[in-house]
Simulated scan of single mutants.
Amino acid sequence: MPEPPDSSESDPESGAASEVEHDKQGLELAKSLAGRLKQQAAKGGFKPVKRRRRPRIDGAQISSARPDDRDPQRLTNTLGRLMRDQGWEVDVAVHGVMARWPSIVGPEMAEHCKPESYDDTVLTVRTSSTAWATQLKLLAPDLVRRLNAELGEGTVTVVNVQGPHTPSWRKGPRTIRGGRGPRDTYG
């Protein structure tokens, strides 16, 4: 059985001696630094380092243990607050109703009548034919009642019903300059 190497001998693989010699210059530097620190402490101690505080922004609060607006928030809460602050609640609700239009007016009427715009309590609806426009005009008071039940009272006061888009004869091959239009075309 081989004998363990002597602790005073150097390790052949690492090439390092088991006894470590210190750098004399580094030791002297550490001793002189420790001496200066002792002298400074005897004279009056160390003054604490003053940290610069960040300038406080007007209205900024100091962080605390209680939750506040600077903490991470749920997206639904943040979007709700944004809509409320910007006054978009009614517009978002109206667009939600427009997305559910077939369930409000029925699938057959939704196929022929599409909501186009909402502006200041007036809902504009475009129909596919004049017959559907007449039908919707008759049902307008009931539609206003249903929409106000969904959105809140007073949100929709008028349903502006518009018929289908008709061709314009102001441009094209059947235009007459200064004339009376297409009347003589259907003669």
Rank of each mutant, 00 (worst) to 15 (best):
V144E: 07
P164S: 09
V159D: 01
G152C: 03
G163F: 04
L143Q: 03
L151T: 06
V158K: 14
P164H: 10
P164M: 10
T130Q: 14
Q162T: 14
R145N: 10
L143E: 04
V144D: 02
P164Y: 11
A131R: 09
T130Y: 15
E153C: 00
E153V: 09
Q135A: 15
W132T: 11
A131D: 14
P141C: 01
Q135F: 12
V144C: 06
A140E: 01
N160S: 10
A140Y: 03
G154A: 09
L147N: 02
W132I: 11
N148Q: 08
P141T: 03
T155A: 11
A140C: 10
P164T: 08
L138N: 14
V158I: 12
V156S: 03
N148G: 08
D142A: 12
N160D: 14
V158Y: 10
V156R: 02
A133P: 01
P141N: 05
P164G: 05
V156T: 04
T134A: 15
A131T: 15
G152I: 03
N148I: 09
R145S: 11
V161H: 02
E150K: 04
Q135V: 13
D142Q: 14
Q162V: 15
L143T: 00
A149Y: 00
T157V: 11
P164E: 14
T155F: 04
T130N: 15
G163P: 07
V156K: 02
